[in-house]
Design a protein around this nucleic acid. Structure first.
Lengths: 346, 346
DNA sequence: ATTAGCACTCACATAGCGAGAGTGCTAACG
DNA sequence: CGTTAGCACTCTCGCTATGTGAGTGCTAAT
């Protein structure tokens, strides 16, 4: 009993219908929908076979069938055709990225927002991971009697700047000397590495400007944020829209898992390894997420993969459309971030 | 039929019980709880009076009573005693504010987060409104061949800085001249005003560095964010914890209203006018919020009120505890932000 | 191989019923 | 007169039929 093309067509019809309605689909529905002149009885036989193959499930004896995780996987891998974005959708994304977005955070936040408002799923977007990026220059600039600006310049451009308090009686030339010293010493190191080494060395040697350099180290370390805060989450409450989560308790369970954040961070961090990923139901490691699917994509800055983003939704997801959206947004996002950082070539 | 002290005691007991249980409270419960040696029958009579006074409501004939909006108002204004924060609670707040928070956004976000995790209500915090703040100096600093940093310094300190693209072939001295020119011209104006005037003048006269100055104007204008993005929201899904919102549809209705954001912005903007505000049920203008209460407080930067924050929760709220929390957080927040901006006196 | 026919299953909606919580009223009491 | 015991009454809530409809699985005929 193999999977001939008719079985596949029926399976596809069932999945399509179920994605739309979220209710178990019966043989009569398919018989009419598929237009092959087959009676419901024939469909029933085929459905029975599909059931035996582990592709369909039955909530209870006398209900219609719903696709199993295995069926979705088959669908995604072999049946589904890659769909394109409609013009309106592309425009929608463009429009929202064209707004004045002044820093990375804004862009990432906007990505999550656009994603959740387009898909009505829960969306998430990882902040670029600057751990691997190397320091090129540190520049300290005096802006008032008591404050200086620390600017971190890296391989991919101007990265971060922060106002720090200045010890009294330090002048421009001294500050420049410090900048040069720091630059020389920590150039070509990874940012966090530079920060922690500086911090360590401060503990041993007794420097002149202890507190000040401490702040510089903090700036370096702050570039990569903590696990909990380095991704944006949006549309959490969208799950209340889905009949799958009409039960408040079930909804809360998922929301709690999601808002724990650790889980999602791991998912996104893992997602950086491949351009796109689709994880269906039981393929998820977390027990709380056995009923949803996660689809992710990655973005690049200057050619290098720097982060990931994606959606969490019910298993009956329009995977092909979601992929199209993620793919388009990934391109846009990569472009925006790249031009945001890049030092134009001289 | 006035409001003697016994009626007040009974009312308070009812409110206290209802805050805890969220179920209509009956005469026997109060008779036992209040410890005045009164039988349930007596309580019933009193309750009947309170009902006539519009202070109690009955979901249906044979159920207990629940406090009316008017009762909550009476409670808040006349009965409630101002409670203090427990040590753990104060510590909790302190701990979370002591984390390295590098910019305003982080502080505001943290405020919202701490608030919602302490209260389990929905919380919101307005970003400081810099509209009224006056420009003191604009400083442009070259940081590479193609990029400069624009630093905005105001009455209350260093405000905002942004990397902007530099036209080719502009040198340090030219940039300094530009800084001085801009400073002279727009000093003591409000930031947004300065930005829009600059933008306007650029349209008329044909300046040398059109595009560059345009970016400077954008930085000025970006200081105050748009209606939609200038406050942080946290704990939206907390309402699912309350029996009042065990119905998904009802929950969604409130969530939708809240995530529309315009409504909340108006509430927070209004809240800046008074140090604390409590709005109970039908006192809310929005129809979608007739079933909740809103409590807000304000924070200051350098003595001047610059923003507000607060919670949205069910009407049966522990108002006195919430006020204590808000009050304590307001102080902390004011201190943090003030020291963040302040130029130490020279 | 396909299909008509039919018995069977199960969720769901509806109605009826009893129990329990709570009220409002009346009459008695100190 | 305020307070209270007593009691009938009301309404929700949970439980148990009961019927209906969608859908299945099997059998026998085409």
């Amino acid at each position: 009993m193999g999977l001939d093309s008719r079985k596949l067509a029926i399976l596809q019809a069932i999945i399509d219908d179920y994605i739309l309605t979220a209710t178990p689909v019966g043989s009569r529905t398919i018989s009419k929908r598929i237009g092959m002149g087959l009676s419901s009885a024939t469909i029933r036989n085929e459905m029975s076979d599909l059931h035996e193959l582990g592709l369909l499930e039955q909530p209870h004896t006398s209900a219609g069938r719903i696709p199993s995780d295995k069926a979705y996987r088959l669908y995604v891998n072999n049946i589904m055709s890659r769909s394109a974005l409609s013009d309106e959708e592309a425009q929608f994304i463009k429009k929202h990225y064209d707004e004045k977005l002044s820093d990375i955070e804004d862009v990432i936040k906007q990505t999550a927002n656009v994603l959740s408002s387009m898909t009505h799923y829960i969306s998430m977007a990882l902040t670029p991971s600057f751990n691997t990026i190397k320091l090129r220059r540190i520049q300290l600039i005096k802006i008032s009697e008591t404050r200086a600006l620390a600017i971190i310049i890296t391989d991919i451009g101007v990265m971060k700047d922060a106002v720090i308090r200045l010890p009294t009686g330090i002048d421009d030339s001294q500050l420049e000397k410090l900048s040069n010293m720091l630059t020389k010493k920590y150039m070509n190191r990874k940012l966090t590495e530079a920060g922690s080494v500086l911090l360590k060395e401060l503990q041993n040697t007794l420097s002149d400007h202890r507190e000040f350099l401490d702040s510089v180290a903090t700036v370096l370390l702050n570039v990569s944020k903590s696990r909990k805060t380095n991704f944006e989450l949006s549309g959490t409450t969208n799950i209340l829209l889905f009949p799958e989560y009409s039960d408040v308790l079930k909804a809360r369970q998922l929301i709690d898992a999601i808002e724990g954040r650790d889980l999602l961070y791991d998912i996104l961090d893992n997602a950086k390894k491949v351009e796109f990923s689709i994880t269906i139901g039981s393929e998820n490691e977390s027990l709380d997420m056995q009923d949803c699917s996660v689809v992710t994509a990655t973005y690049r800055i200057g050619g290098e993969t720097m982060g990931s983003f994606g959606v969490i939704g019910p298993k009956r997801m329009d995977y092909s459309k979601i992929l199209a959206i993620l793919s388009y947004m990934g391109e846009s996002l990569s472009n925006i971030l790249t031009t945001m950082f890049e030092e134009d070539e001289e």
